[in-house]
C-alpha cells in the first residue's frame, strides 16, 4: 500500500502531514518513508532518521575513446539534446546537456563510446527512532534534473526495521511529493495506491490543488484532501472538493502554537497528543478509501 502526500502549492503542510501520518502508522504497521522532494527534502528534520547508508546516484554519460573514434558524427546526429558535438576530427561531450539515454553508446558504429556515472545527487537511508525505514533523495546544488534521482529513490526500498515487538499488520509506504504539478510529481505518484492532497483554503491553495488533482485523476488514483490552516481563507476549496468528489479527510485549524511547534521541528502528533487520534482515524479512512 503506497500513499503519496502531495499539494501543488508549496508550504501547505505536506511534510507536516506526511511525517505525522508515518509516525502513527508506525505504531502498528511496517512503514517505509520516501522523501521525494529531491530539490528541497525536509522530512528528515522531523523524523530524525539515522542515515547510515549513503549512495551516490546520477546518470550514465558517454566517454569517447579518441583512439577508436573516427569522427563520423553519428553520435552528434542522433543526440536529441545536443550533448555531443563533432567538429573536424574532434568529438566533444557536454555532460550538463546529457540525459543519460544511452543512444550514442548503442549507435556508435566504432563502439568507441563507454559510459560512466556522472553523480548528480545521492540517496541516504536509515531508520528513525519510531522504527520507520527512511530514504531521501537529494539533488546536488547546481544540477538541473532531479528525475534520475527520484527514479533511483523509488527503486531503493530502504530495509524495514526488524525491531517491532508485534508483527506488523500491514506494510505501508509513504511518499512525500515535491511541490508543483510537473513531471516529478507524476513520477512520485506513479505506482502509488492513494494520493493525499494537503492544501490551504486560499485561492492559491485551490488553484494549485486543481493542478495536482488533475494528475491523480489522469493516473486513475483515488484521492482525499487535508485542509491545513483551516479558517484562514474562504470556502472555495470545500466547494471544489464537493463538486469533484474529493473527500475531505482531515481539517487542521490555523493555530499559532502548531505553527511554532512545526517551525521548531516537531511533527503535529508530537506537538499535540490529540492529533494522534485524528491521524489514526485519517490513516484508517485512507485505507478504507482504497479498498472501496
Amino acid at each position: 500500500m503506497r500513499i503519496v502526500v502531495a499539494s501543488g502549492k508549496g508550504g501547505t503542510g505536506k511534510t507536516t502531514v506526511a511525517t505525522s501520518l508515518a509516525q502513527v502508522a508506525a505504531e502498528r504497521d511496517a512503514v517505509r518513508f520516501l522523501d521525494c522532494d529531491v530539490e528541497t527534502p525536509n522530512a528528515a528534520l522531523f523524523l530524525h532518521p539515522r542515515l547510515d547508508v549513503h549512495r551516490d546516484v546520477g546518470i550514465r554519460v558517454p566517454r569517447v575513446d579518441p583512439q577508436t573514434c573516427n569522427a563520423c558524427g553519428t553520435c552528434a546526429e542522433i543526440c536529441r539534446f545536443n550533448a555531443i558535438a563533432v567538429v573536424g576530427e574532434t568529438t566533444l561531450v557536454f555532460d550538463d546537456l546529457c540525459h543519460g539515454c544511452g543512444s550514442c553508446t548503442w549507435m556508435c558504429p566504432e563502439q568507441a563510446i563507454t559510459e560512466h556515472l556522472l553523480v548528480t545527487g545521492s540517496i541516504d537511508s536509515g531508520t528513525t527512532p519510531d522504527g520507520i525505514a527512511f530514504a531521501r533523495g537529494m539533488m546536488n546544488v547546481g544540477q538541473a534534473m532531479g528525475m534520475p534521482i527520484l527514479r533511483e529513490l523509488k527503486k531503493s526500498s530502504p530495509a524495514l526495521s526488524p525491531t517491532m515487538t508485534v508483527p506488523p499488520r500491514r506494510t505501508l509506504e509513504i511518499r512525500d511529493a515535491p511541490p508543483g504539478a510537473s513531471c516529478p510529481v507524476v513520477e512520485t505518484m506513479r505506482g502509488a495506491d492513494f494520493v493525499l492532497f494537503v492544501t490551504e483554503p486560499t485561492p492559491f491553495g485551490l488553484h494549485d490543488l486543481k493542478q495536482v488533482a488533475a494528475i491523480a485523476r489522469e493516473l486513475g488514483l483515488p484521492a482525499g484532501v487535508v485542509i491545513n490552516r483551516d479558517g484562514i481563507g474562504d470556502a472555495a476549496v470545500d466547494a471544489y472538493c464537493v463538486e469533484s468528489d474529493l473527500p475531505i479527510l482531515l481539517r487542521i485549524p490555523m493555530d499559532r502554537r502548531i505553527a511554532e511547534a512545526i517551525a521548531a521541528g516537531s511533527t503535529l502528533v508530537e506537538a499535540n497528543l490529540d492529533d494522534r487520534h485524528r491521524f489514526r482515524a485519517l490513516l484508517e479512512r485512507i485505507l478504507a478509501e482504497v479498498t472501496v
Binding site: 552528434a76 550533448a83 558535438a85 563533432v86 567538429v87
Partner: peptide, 17 residues
C-alpha cells in the same frame, strides 16, 4: 538550432563549422 530545446549553441557551432 533556433528550435532546439537544449544545446542551441552547440548545434549552431557545428552548423557554422
Amino acid at each position: 538550432a533556433l528550435s532546439a530545446s537544449g544545446g542551441a549553441g552547440v548545434l549552431a557551432a557545428q552548423f557554422i563549422a
